[in-house]
């Protein structure tokens, strides 16, 4: 039997490694199950994976869950400013009642989680450092995710929407003054060549994105017990690897920027609190308005220590 797994990343990315571990473990278990990985959007485009997954036309995917926020507004909580403080906190969120509530939402779409994982990101400025809300005022900014756009607009930034592959060019020509995306994208798109200052995800970080390995639930339930066990065992191993590598990635990106001669800035606890206050007035508020049981879900997430 064969399962098809689709993702958008290159085969050197952590998220590919996560998929690969699961595939290799399942193959090693010799349970007549083969996972075929289609990377680099070779099967589906990044944002077009969730629908086929939920309809059983695709078996597995590694996906930023917020991409499907238009279908399940609750998913927007998985890319909410200041909700996750650091990677260990993220790991605790994965085991919380909040995550259980999200998994219930996924089950409505016939989707389940195999591997949990969060990745972090930061900010770059073309002319100066961005650590607190005042820094972003009046800058043309590209933000990763709806909630961040709302918060940054609230800080007085002007929002320009473009894909992360366009950031390099736009910063080079001066269309963009600042950008916010994941640590790995900053490195893979060589943004350090165009940035003056980088605010990486450190002990305190604002930008965390939940990017689990998902599977179609009915497909999983259709497998025999041995196959399910092999998948779950592989997933457990992959999840440990994911957390470990996610932590390393932020430091690695900082190192790359430092070597390229880019100034490195750190966000202080005060800066973080100021952003979070702003987020409460903007993105949190909007989220609660747009989502049926939004307040309840938000409280559940905030309750995780």
């Amino acid at each position: 039997e064969e399962l098809r797994l689709s993702h958008q990343w290159s085969n050197t990315d952590i998220r590919h490694e996560v998929a690969k571990i699961v595939a290799d473990e399942v193959a090693a278990a010799d349970v007549d199950l083969d996972i075929k990985i289609f990377g680099s959007q070779s099967l589906f485009k990044a944002r077009e994976q969730y629908t086929p997954l939920s309809r059983g036309q695709l078996d597995m995917t590694v996906l930023p869950l917020s991409y499907a926020g238009g279908q399940q507004p609750a998913y927007n909580l998985t890319l909410m400013p200041g909700l996750v403080k650091n990677h260990d906190h993220a790991a605790r969120l994965n085991e919380s009642p909040f995550m259980e509530a999200l998994e219930e939402k996924m089950a409505e779409d016939d989707v389940m989680v195999l591997v949990h994982g969060y990745l972090a990101g930061g900010f770059v400025g073309a002319d100066g450092c961005i650590t607190k809300p005042e820094d972003i005022k009046g800058l043309q900014t590209r933000a990763a995710g709806k909630a961040f756009e709302q918060m940054l607009a609230g800080a007085g930034a002007s929002i320009a929407s473009m894909s992360s592959s366009e950031i390099y060019n736009a910063m080079q020509t001066g269309v963009l003054d600042a950008a916010n995306t994941s640590s790995s994208s900053f490195v893979s798109y060589r943004i350090y060549e165009q940035a003056k200052c980088y605010t990486p995800a450190g002990d305190i970080a604002l930008w965390f994105m939940y990017q689990p390995l998902l599977m179609n639930k009915s497909t999983f339930e259709g497998l025999n017990e041995e196959q399910q066990a092999a998948l779950l065992a592989g997933a457990e191993k992959a999840q440990a690897h994911y957390l470990e590598e996610a932590k390393k990635e932020d430091a690695a990106s900082e190192e790359v920027f430092r070597e390229a001669g880019v100034e490195i800035a750190q966000m202080s606890q005060e800066d973080f609190d100021a952003w979070r206050e702003l987020a409460k007035e903007t993105s949190y508020k909007q989220f609660v308005e747009d989502t049926p049981d939004g307040q309840k879900l938000l409280d559940m997430a905030l309750a995780v220590e």
Partner: peptide, 15 residues
């Protein structure tokens, strides 16, 4: 019809 029935929106601020 799927998109209509389930009231799908785009995952942007404009939505």
């Amino acid at each position: 019809h799927f998109a209509w029935d389930r009231n799908w929106k785009s995952d942007t601020v404009w939505g």
